[in-house]
Simulated scan of single mutants.
Amino acid sequence: MTSANPVAIVTGASKGIGKATCISLAKLGFNVVGFARSELELKAVGKECETANPSTQFAYYSGDVSNNSDCDSTVELATKKFGRIDALVNNAAILDPAGDLTKISKADLARHFDVNLFSVLYLTQVALPELIKLKGKVINISSGSATTFLNTWGAYCCSKASLNMMTTGFATEVPEVTFLALRPGAVDTDMQVQIRASGHLMRPEDLKMFVSFKENGILIHPNIPASVIANLCLKLDHNLSGKFFSWDSPELAAYRD
């Protein structure tokens, strides 16, 4: 049976921006399929989604986005339970390995790209047949690091820059679907905690910058970009397909509450 509600898959759904996006989507009337590693946290997200909007449903798959079989199972769950996929939010990502590109091993960089880029490629490919049917939306969560290099986080910068180009590539090849790469801003999440805790690896001036984000209240709550992401899933203008914007870009004013 096909759901009357639109349906979105969200990766990295157990915490931070992913969790907040699931809840924002539920508020807009989406049934949500959360994909993350922690089953316990996913169950908690589901309760929050259904509290936010009792007329929606939350399903989840506990697995690893870099595992093709887990990606297959997540898409299968969405199609079997809800009969449709209207949107895909590729949010899951890792920060490690930290360190200079001159010293990062090939194996560590490959693992990083497997999570941050190759998983997006594969999951998008698997979901595309359903997305094409409904002229769906794909929102890839990028970063300002895609365009500004940060010492110590070179691997992350490279994977996010590649994600932006992949977004453009998919938009070119699949005109039936609307794709967008989104910078969510400096968000108060576990990733920012990890960055501050890695200060011994960073240049003093870079560490000072990240610490100041927290101390000066510059970090924004995950609910802020999550609301934009949910609105993009609902009504993203196809004319923006393939682009990279920040959550607070003038071009996205219509998607901010």
Rank of each mutant, 00 (worst) to 15 (best):
V45E: 03
G169M: 12
K160R: 12
A78K: 00
A253E: 15
K243S: 14
D206V: 09
A230Q: 07
T172V: 08
N223K: 08
R196K: 14
G99I: 05
Y122H: 14
G99A: 10
A78I: 06
K208L: 13
F149I: 00
T79I: 14
A20Y: 01
I220K: 06
V177Y: 07
S38Y: 06
V65E: 14
P184S: 12
N67E: 13
V193F: 09
D257N: 14
E176S: 13
N231T: 06
A254C: 07
A78G: 15
S143M: 09
M191V: 07
A4G: 11
G154A: 05
K135N: 07
A107C: 02
I224P: 03
G16E: 11
A226Q: 02
M209I: 13
C49A: 03
E215A: 07
F210T: 05
G154C: 06
S145A: 15
M202A: 14
R256A: 09
L234Q: 15
G83T: 08
G12R: 01
T124D: 02
S119V: 10
T189H: 02
K235S: 15
L28G: 05
G169Q: 15
S198E: 15
I9H: 03
A4H: 07
V32S: 10
E173W: 02
A8D: 13
A226T: 02
D86Y: 02
A171G: 03
T172H: 11
D72N: 12
K47I: 07
D237T: 04
A186D: 12
S38G: 10
Q194N: 12
G16P: 00
A155Q: 06
H112G: 15
I94A: 11
L121H: 13
P175R: 13
G16M: 07
I23F: 04
D100F: 03
S143N: 09
Q125S: 11
M209N: 11
G136W: 04
S66K: 05
L252D: 04
L163M: 15
N151G: 09
T189E: 07
F213L: 11
E76T: 10
E215P: 02
N231G: 08
I141W: 01
A171S: 13
F82W: 02
I229M: 08
V174F: 06
K133S: 07
G242T: 09
L131W: 04
F213A: 00
G154S: 09
R183E: 15
G12D: 10
I218D: 14
V120Y: 04
N164F: 06
V126N: 06
T74M: 05
D100T: 08
K235I: 09
V138I: 13
T11H: 10
P225D: 14
P175N: 07
L134V: 14
S14I: 12
S119P: 04
E76G: 02
L42R: 04
C49S: 05
G63W: 05
E176L: 09
L101T: 08
L163C: 12
G99V: 10
Y61E: 10
V10F: 08
Y156P: 01
P250M: 01
S69M: 00
M209W: 09
D188K: 06
N164H: 11
L42I: 10
I23S: 01
F179Q: 10
D114C: 05
A171P: 00
S105D: 12
D100V: 00
L40S: 08
I141T: 10
M191W: 02
Y255P: 13
M1Y: 06
L163S: 13
C158G: 15
P222S: 08
